[in-house]
Write a protein that binds this DNA or RNA. Structure first.
Lengths: 242, 242
DNA sequence: ACATCTGTGTCGACTACTCGACAGCGCGGC
DNA sequence: GCCGCGCTGTCGAGTAGTCGACACAGATGT
């Protein structure tokens, strides 16, 4: 069973899949389809029935809460430490959010029915799903506090760092406009903060691309929420994700 | 089995318990202990093992995210539409938050082991737990957006309304200081907003007590988040909670 | 009646962020 | 090559909320 995946093993970096015992992984591996997800694509919109679950390997997916005026703000990111739509493994669900590809990359997709089937048979998978949902909840409640208490600069850094943890390398492709939406602030504010971080030598910004130059420097500026969320994931999920 | 609860039936207002089929409720009712929870009491602090689950009847519990500097901000409230600690019904868990009694009242308590036992035997209970956790997650992500995008006045009204939905009557006992903590703003800001709402005739404020005078007026001022979260609960949970 | 403590009102200086407008730069298409 | 568009930088006026300080009012205990 697992053999069918040997060829792709090198790119199968999702931490959740990696944490499954071989036998349990065998239940789902025949149903996994690996695919490239292109930046900007919407996997779900609010109200959509969840029909597929995605396990990112090196892409990042943003869960965006939509407001009536069209604003879309990130409530949590999902990368190789997690999966999109995992709540639907337990029972059919509609998406609460817009799920958008924030950084292109590979992910493994599986149908809800196949995953649910494996879920009924694998205690290890049930445990993993449960832990993941808990970690995601932890991320969300930390962000509630963070958005109420912390300034844009700290949140900007936090966002960069948590994105970096989920991809390979220190180069992130995004526009200031996009980031402003994610953080729920004005684009001009992002420009100002980006300029300030660049002046401090922590990042480099060029048209649509940010390079992280000094990760430790960013960690010194960001708020405690970055570390708190990270600890939450590390405690609940089997493998470190950085 | 259920007979043992007949005497208390009049005060058993928790919507989750009420939604359980008689047979399933019979699995847990012998283990439920009804008790008064006094305002200000901490049921959990972050890191505490969850040993008991609480089903509020007419009290309100706040889930507070703690920050390093001691600030504690509300990430979600729990009233008769839900239960505190329900994630632990599935598997042992540590609390992520401080759970504090925001409004005194009655709740039914049950040990994690008794509830987990019932959980393994009752599909209806499993479904309910799952739906509840989803609704709570929905609340959290809406609050992430709300805190980033909406002003204090709208959030103040939202808080009042969602508290009112969970208790009997239009009188809420709280100080401005406490509310300032919950919202993550300065006390002076709360004073200003409260004064403005009072001037508009929507509330009356006297030392430690707010009376809601015009609920519809508050709904007109608050942000869409109030209705969005409420819809989320109504969709996922069997009974309306207002 | 008194002191005391907790909760509320208010003031002013300050800061972070908004919001609209516009100029310029760089990249891709032709 | 040049055009055009999408992304970035900047400026300025306006506002919401911070932060510290202090005065006052209402409850409570003795």
């Amino acid at each position: 069973m697992v053999d069918s995946f040997d060829g792709a093993a090198a790119t199968l970096k999702n931490r959740l899949l990696a944490a499954l015992p071989t036998e349990d992984f065998g239940l789902i591996s025949p149903h996994l389809v690996q695919q490239e997800l292109e930046k900007g694509r919407h996997l779900y919109d609010p109200g959509d029935p969840i029909e597929a679950i995605y396990f990112p390997h090196d892409c990042v997916i943003s869960l965006m809460t939509l407001m009536e005026n069209g604003a879309a703000i990130e409530s949590a990111p999902i990368g190789r430490e997690g999966a999109l739509g995992l709540m639907a493994a337990v029972a059919p669900r509609q998406s609460l959010v817009r799920a958008i590809i924030q950084t292109s990359g590979q992910a493994s997709r599986i149908s809800v029915s196949a995953l649910h089937d494996a879920w009924t048979r694998s205690p290890a998978l049930r445990d993993l799903v449960d832990r993941h949902n808990e970690a995601l909840f932890g991320h969300a409640i930390q962000s509630v506090a963070c958005n109420a208490l912390h300034g844009v600069e700290a949140r900007f850094c936090r966002w960069l760092l948590s994105c970096r943890d989920r991809i390979e390398g220190d180069t992130i492709s995004l526009t200031q406009e996009f980031l402003a939406d994610m953080l729920g602030v004005q684009r001009t504010t992002v420009t100002a903060v980006a300029g300030s971080l660049q002046a401090k030598g922590l990042i480099r910004y060029r048209r649509g691309v940010v390079d992280i130059l000094d990760r430790a420097g960013l960690e010194a500026i960001t708020c405690e929420c970055y570390a708190a969320v990270r600890r939450g994931y590390e405690r609940l999920l089997p493998l470190p994700f950085g």
